[in-house]
Design a protein around this nucleic acid. Structure first.
Lengths: 125, 125
DNA sequence: CCGTATCCGACGCGATACTG
DNA sequence: CAGTATCGCGTCGGATACGG
């Protein structure tokens, strides 16, 4: 365990701004493109498309095109994508419990902007 | 639960390239700057400093300067930082179990580079 | 030993406009 | 409805060199 943590950020892309929110939005079932745009307030169609495509590419999300007019496209978590719900729940629980502490620490850091310096004359001898 | 996942990436900075690895390196106790540079192969001193400073700023890491020549600086996880070990273990366990699947999916995606297109003549009416 | 100082390229993300 | 096409900016991270 903890043998390698290199994938938390990439290629897991869990570090992306929208990926975690999209996973959450898809948790309770398939959603259409426009049904994702609404809860993800502020996301642009371009970015939503990009993110969904990369998730599809990684096998986390399944994209289904239903023929017809107007077009209808559904996105849903794959079996693999669903396995991410557990770890994500752990992370969300962490932030719910400890994010305020982190924010407090950050605020307290304002002012003493200078880290403790090294002792002077460190090249001597 | 899952009420908000916006902090997985930021400000948690867990999405950073080195943060998870640093946490892991500090798991078993304090480490000096140079003791971090070795296991984190490829990191430059500039980036290591930046990352450690941001973690210190967020209260995840404690930086201790021991006076003397040559200088000695220790970094260790704070109590708050240690609370991250759980969620991180969940993420690492996920990648140990499922990262190969993700990589396979990514590889299989090569070739059928074109996502299923929408039906033609999609203009309403 | 423990950093800083510059420079710089790549990428993520957003704004805006347009289309089948 | 479900996208695509451009453009641009800010941030992250790496290369390299120097300093107390």
């Amino acid at each position: 365990m903890f043998t390698d943590c290199s994938h938390v950020a990439s290629p897991l892309r869990l570090g992306g701004k929208w990926t975690p929110k999209i996973i959450r939005c898809l948790e309770s079932g398939p959603r259409r493109f426009s049904e994702l745009e609404v809860p993800l307030r502020g996301i642009t169609p371009k970015v939503l498309t990009e993110t969904l495509r990369s998730m599809e590419r990684d096998g986390l999300v399944i994209r289904t095109v239903h023929g017809g007019i107007p077009p209808r496209v559904d996105y849903e978590l794959s079996t693999l994508g669903r396995t991410l719900l557990g770890p994500m729940a752990a992370c969300c629980a962490w932030s719910a419990a400890h994010l305020p502490d982190l924010l407090d620490a950050r605020e307290a850091y304002e002012g003493d902007l200078a880290p403790e310096p090294l002792p002077k004359g460190a090249a001597t001898r």
